[in-house]
């Protein structure tokens, strides 16, 4: 699977329109659990709709807004075959 061979990058470094998979969040446990609860799980793919402040991602049909500071602490694996 291509995703496994790609190094994780910060969500804030992802290009708009790119599709990626959540890798890890270097945040406290409560926020990490909340991110999983609203849909940013390790198995789900998401698309970056907007970068900057805020960063907006779409997981299935859920749109999630994240502050830029938070996006800088979330590591994702870009899916090379999808998105921009």
């Amino acid at each position: 699977m291509p995703a496994s061979s790609v190094a994780p990058i910060r969500l804030s470094d992802l290009g708009v329109g790119a599709v990626a998979r959540f890798h890890e969040a270097r945040l406290d446990r409560e926020i990490t659990r909340f991110l999983r609860a609203i849909g940013l799980t390790r198995t789900s793919e998401f698309r970056l709709c907007k970068n900057g402040e805020p960063c907006i991602v779409q997981v299935r049909s859920t749109r999630i807004g994240l502050s830029r500071a938070l996006a800088g602490q979330i590591y994702v694996v870009p899916l090379a075959s999808k998105g921009a």
Binding site: L35, I64, S67
Partner: peptide, 8 residues
Amino acid sequence: ARPMVLEL
């Protein structure tokens, strides 16, 4: 303040 993360 908690870093902002919200469902839109």
